[in-house]
Design a protein around this nucleic acid. Sequence first.
DNA 1: CTTCCGATTGAA
DNA 2: TCAATCGGAAGG
Length: 193
Amino acid sequence: MPQTSLSISPTWLERSVLEVAPDLIGCTIVRQFEDGRQLRGLIVETEAYQEDDPGCHGYRGKTTRNAAIFGPAGLSYVYLIYGMYHCFNVVTDRDGFGSAVLVRAVELDGEPRRSYKGKLAKVGAGPGKLCQAMEIDMQHNHQWLQPGAAIWLEARSLDWQGELVRSTRIGLSQGQDLPWRWYLRGAKGVSRL
DNA sequence: CTTCCGATTGAA
DNA sequence: TCAATCGGAAGG
């Protein structure tokens, strides 16, 4: 019997965010629309955040906004940044411990309905642009990432291979020296090298 | 209540 | 280098 489901389980995500963040490179975000349309994005860039890190939204404890990252692994965490862009995260580690992987870039397999000003080349390259292209917003916050939902994750294909590059995170005013960003070497859609 | 500011982006 | 744009969080 061939493997029929590549979907990523909460158990697989129930590890340190520092392990999961690099492991998610090469995996796929599946965006399922109600009309049956589907968008798939290969994850090529991620960052790790956890509550003991000053760059993390959960650093000063649980609030209404960041509640999702304190929940169990397998939930989504979506937030609005600069009043105009959304960022998509995957909650990791044990329930009660604040941690999540920020997905910073994907390479889409199809054409998004909302191309970014017609520039398809850079669609999905950057956390804000990723959410624009995949039509992810606040209604997708604090949701289970499982097949049948609007968004879920699929594991790397069995023959996947790629080299990861590790570096510091982008856009932070605190915790900017921690090497908690990973991207796929040679990937077209990485937001920054 | 008022003020501050961000895990961004692209134009100047 | 800088403005757009706005809701959450912090401070008075």
